[in-house]
């Protein structure tokens, strides 16, 4: 995945689409057309993300990973593939294919924690950990099944 650098060091809005050189903020044409795909997009609802040819203007190629201080960690052993996390994720960061939950897209996840809240299993198959925590340690410290479900 290329480094989109949404809030990065490259000044935003300084390269006019199709322009050869960088232009100043007061020279940018009002209004812009951004194409999400390099090719035809008519049947895009029948193609998975990995089968699409995203253009450099799609936010799919960008990342907001730097927003996170905590991250969700996914435990495949407990998951029942209910897809609650998929439907409620505001950042399209739950990767689901063929009715199976595959994992988390850490390039787009902002660490809001909604997926953990809506997870119905006991113990939860998604839990929030500190961003710096490595995945093996997080999975090793997974809590045991609770007798009484707290709410």
């Amino acid at each position: 995945m290329s480094n989109g650098n949404v809030l990065g060091n490259e000044k935003r809005g300084m390269v006019e689409l199709g322009a050869e050189k960088k232009v100043g903020w007061d020279e940018v044409t009002h209004g812009a057309v951004l194409y999400s795909f390099e090719d035809d997009a008519t049947d895009v609802s029948f193609r998975k993300a990995e089968d699409r040819n995203y253009a450099q203007f799609s936010s799919y190629v960008a990342t907001v990973a730097s927003w996170r201080t905590i991250k969700p960690v996914y435990n495949r052993d407990i998951c029942i593939d209910c897809q609650n996390c998929w439907v409620f994720c505001p950042d399209v960061s739950i990767i689901s294919r063929d009715k199976q939950m595959l994992g988390i897209d850490y390039d787009h996840c902002k660490g809001c924690g909604v997926c953990v809240e809506v997870c119905p299993t006991n113990p939860k198959s998604l839990l929030m950990f500190a961003e710096a925590q490595n995945l093996e340690d997080a999975l090793a410290s997974w809590p045991e099944k609770k007798k009484k479900e707290e709410k």
Partner: peptide, 26 residues
């Protein structure tokens, strides 16, 4: 059911700048 629904291919992409946990994007 949700399993059937989850076969949809998202046409809204991540890395938009809405707040974490915003219901708009849901």
């Amino acid at each position: 059911n949700l399993k059937e629904f989850s076969t949809a291919n998202d046409r809204f992409e991540g890395a938009h700048l809405l707040c974490p946990g915003c219901a708009h994007s849901m």
